[in-house]
Design a protein around this nucleic acid. Structure first.
Lengths: 216, 216
DNA sequence: GTCTATAGAAAGATAGAC
DNA sequence: GTCTATCTTTCTATAGAC
C-alpha cells in the first residue's frame, strides 16, 4: 500500500499526471470531503480514466496520506523559516501567529484536509506519521507558551491546552475566508495576531494603553 | 424525504426504537464520520435490522438532519437561558464563554457532528435550516462583541470575524477533551474564559493587575 | 502509462410476509 | 413495526490489450 515511486515528474507530452491527480484530489477532498469523492471524480478532473490513477498511487488511502504528509512537511519547513527557535517568547508568539494566519489564508485546501480528514485516514504507519507531524507543529507553539510562562510574561495555566485553543482559533479562518473575504490580508492578520497576543495577557499592540483601563 | 411522524415514543415492550437509532447514530457519526458509517452499522448498534430504520427515518440524510437540528434547537434554547439578552457586554461575554465551554464538555458528540458534518448534509430545506440555526448562535456572540465595541470596552475591529474566531477556539475543546482530561471541568472553563476575555482586551480575572505591566 | 472492461464488495433503499 | 430477501447503484481495485 505504499506510494508508487515518483520517478519521472513529467511524461513525454510534458504533462505531469501525478501532479494533476494530487492537485485535483486536493481540491475535491477539501470541497466535498474524502468520503464524498470517488476515484472516478478525481480521474475525470485530472483528465484521465479511473484505472490510471493506480499507476501513480496505490489507492485512495495512499493518495490521502500523500497529500497530508507532503502538506505537513511543507508547513513545518515554512514554520522553521518563519519563527526563530529561541529568543523573546513574545516575538516568537507574534511570529507564529502571523505565520499561521498567513499560511491558512494562502493554502486553505491543504490545511482543511489535514484538519478535517484525520478521521478518514486509516490507522497505520502513515497515520502515525501524520499525527507525529501535527504534534510537532503544536509542540512548537506549546514551547513558546511555556517559555513565556516561565519568564512571567504570559498567563499560561496550561501550555498544551492553550496551544490547542490558539491553533483552533486561527485555523477557523478557513471556514469563513473562502466566501469572498471583505477584509484585506493585513487586516485579518492583524486582528488575529492581536487576539492571540491579548489572550495570553499581553498588551497589544505594543506601546498602547488601550485595554488597560480598569473595565467596569 | 421528510421525517416519519414521531407518534409513539415507546413500543409495547417499553423500548424506544427511534431514540435508540438516534443515540447510536450520533455516537457512530461522531466517532467515524457520517460517510464511514452505514445504515447496517447503526441498525446493529441499535439492536434491530437494517430495513427497520426506514420505519423511523426516511433515509440516512434525514437521520443526519434530524440529529443536527434537534441538537441546535437544544443548544439555542440553553443559550437563551444561560446568557442574558441585554446588560453589561462584559458579563454577557463571560456568560457566553462559560456556557459554550460547558456545553461542549457535556455534549461533545452532538457538537462534533454539527461542526464537522456540515459538508455531509445535502443542500435543501433542512440544510438551510441548519445553517440558519448556526448563524443565529454565532449572531448572539457577534451582538455581544458589537455592544462591547460600541461602549468602548472591547477591542473588536470586526465583530463577525471575532465571533467566528472565538467560537472556533472554544469548539476546539472537543478535539482533545475526549482522551482523558487531566484537568478539572472548572480549570478548563476558567482557562478558556480567561483567554476569551483577554483576547478582546479586557483585564481578567477582574481586579487583578496581572498582564497590565508594560511588557518588554 | 493509459485505455477498456470487469471483478468483487458494499452501500442505500424497497417489497412483502408476519 | 420488524423481519428476510432483494433490487439497484456505486465504489475500489485489478487484468490485460495497446
Amino acid at each position: 500500500m505504499d506510494t508508487i515511486a515518483d520517478t519521472s515528474r513529467t511524461d513525454k507530452r510534458g504533462r505531469d499526471t501525478r501532479s494533476a491527480i494530487r492537485k485535483q484530489a486536493l481540491a475535491l477532498f477539501a470541497e466535498r470531503g474524502y468520503g464524498a469523492v470517488s476515484m472516478r471524480d478525481i480521474a475525470e478532473a485530472a483528465g484521465i480514466r479511473q484505472g490510471a490513477i493506480y499507476n501513480h498511487f496505490a489507492g485512495k488511502q495512499d493518495l490521502l496520506a500523500d497529500l497530508m504528509i507532503s502538506h505537513l512537511d511543507r508547513l513545518l519547513a515554512a514554520l522553521v523559516r518563519a519563527v526563530p527557535a529561541g529568543g523573546d517568547p513574545m516575538r516568537r508568539l507574534e511570529a507564529f501567529a502571523s505565520f499561521h494566519v498567513g499560511y491558512h489564508l494562502d493554502q486553505p485546501d491543504d490545511v482543511v484536509i489535514a484538519d478535517m480528514e484525520l478521521r478518514s485516514l486509516e490507522a497505520g504507519r502513515r497515520g502515525a506519521e501524520v499525527h507525529a507531524l501535527r504534534d510537532r507543529y503544536a509542540g512548537v507553539l506549546a514551547t513558546i507558551l511555556e517559555d513565556g510562562r516561565r519568564t512571567g510574561r504570559f498567563q499560561t495555566p496550561n501550555a498544551k491546552v492553550q496551544a490547542g485553543a490558539l491553533i483552533a482559533m486561527m485555523t477557523g479562518i478557513t471556514v469563513w475566508s473562502r466566501d469572498g473575504a471583505a477584509l484585506t490580508r493585513e487586516a485579518v492578520t492583524a486582528h488575529y495576531v492581536q487576539m492571540v497576543m491579548q489572550s495570553v495577557g499581553l498588551i497589544w499592540p505594543l506601546g498602547e494603553e488601550a485595554g488597560c483601563s480598569t473595565a467596569q
